[in-house]
């Protein structure tokens, strides 16, 4: 196989069809950019789960009565609740936080909003058991067992809040991946169309190739490589766009990330997912090219 010949054919083909080639590259780039966006969200959700999973707790809030009168959890029902929590299977640690400690913590959390701290009275803060579980997913057991018990005001599962937040991100991911799919379909049809046009404009060459006994590979390879080259350029453009967006995004929303509410997504993450995007581009364009040549183009 003469590679120089095949590549000169590829370059001729792409140049001759330059508007179609550009359209093909752009749709591929947008499609892969969206796919990459979806993958970044997946990574972000994973990181978030990792970040918070170890910190997730179940809070058992105690009634006002207990909070006011039992600073050390020495009396009933507080002491009973503590031993009941400690003996529940799957519980790792139980920490009692009385009203004063709770107020301190509240002040710390809302340090940045002094007016809120000013408004809050220690009496509004309940004493709390902070329960850490071996498996945060099993928080439901604690919630069920302790809700409504004497001295218990409410049982909050932080995992539930995190779950809702993650649901939002997962929804966003689904939308982005859905758009990527639609765009991928457009890219696919464009690739197929471009190959057909390309084969038509080169029908004389292809006719002569067939006549002088060129093998199927020799006649088809330039078209296939054309599709793959456009796919790869599309992937590179897509990854470039994604990197630009992530870079710009981290600058604009820097505070959101630095406050550690959302795990930061950096260029490294883009680099990590780029081989996937490149692989998808090569695979899809080669497959589309092959199927098109088989079905629609008589070579």
């Amino acid at each position: 196989m003469r590679t120089s010949f095949v590549f000169s054919e590829v370059v001729t083909g792409l140049r001759r069809n330059v508007t179609m080639t550009i359209a093909m590259i752009l749709t591929t780039a947008i499609s892969l950019g969206l796919l990459g966006g979806g993958l970044l969200i997946v990574r972000m959700v994973d990181k978030m789960q990792d970040n918070y999973q170890s910190k997730l707790e179940v809070s058992v809030l105690l009634t006002n009565d207990v909070s006011a009168n039992d600073k050390d959890c020495a009396q009933q029902p507080c002491a009973g609740l503590r031993s009941a929590l400690e003996t529940t299977s799957g519980v790792e640690t139980v920490v009692y936080e009385n009203r004063d400690k709770g107020y301190e913590r509240f002040k710390q959390i809302f340090e940045a909003q002094p007016e809120l701290v000013k408004l809050a009275r220690p009496e509004a803060i309940p004493a709390t058991f902070r329960v850490k579980l071996e498996d945060p997913a099993r928080a439901g057991v604690i919630v069920q067992a302790f809700t409504g018990k004497a001295g218990v005001k409410a049982v909050n599962d932080q995992g539930e809040f995190l779950g809702r937040l993650l649901d939002v991100f997962n929804g966003l991911r689904n939308i982005v991946l859905g758009l990527a799919l639609v765009q991928a379909l457009a890219a696919l049809l464009l690739i197929s169309n471009t190959i057909q046009v390309s084969a038509f404009t080169r029908r004389t060459e292809v006719g002569i190739m067939r006549l002088v006994g060129a093998t199927r590979w020799y006649t088809q390879l330039p078209f296939l490589i054309e599709a793959v080259v456009a796919g790869v350029i599309g992937a590179v453009v897509g990854v470039g766009g994604l990197a630009l967006m992530v870079w710009g995004g981290t600058r604009v929303s820097g505070e959101l990330f630095s406050s550690q509410i959302l795990p930061p997504m950096g260029l490294l993450d883009v680099v990590i997912i780029s081989p996937i995007l490149l692989g998808v581009a090569v695979f899809i364009s080669a497959l589309t090219g092959y199927v098109t040549l088989r079905l629609y183009v008589r070579l």
Binding site: R2, F5, T204, E205, G207, I208, V212, T215, Y218, T219
Partner: peptide
């Protein structure tokens, strides 16, 4: 005739050999 209009005489003839993989 069926010649390739964008190739020279020599290139037209060489084309028949190139596409069946003959060495340069």
């Amino acid at each position: 005739f069926r010649l390739l209009t964008n190739k020279t005489v020599a290139e037209n003839v060489a084309f028949a050999l190139e596409v069946i993989g003959k060495p340069r």
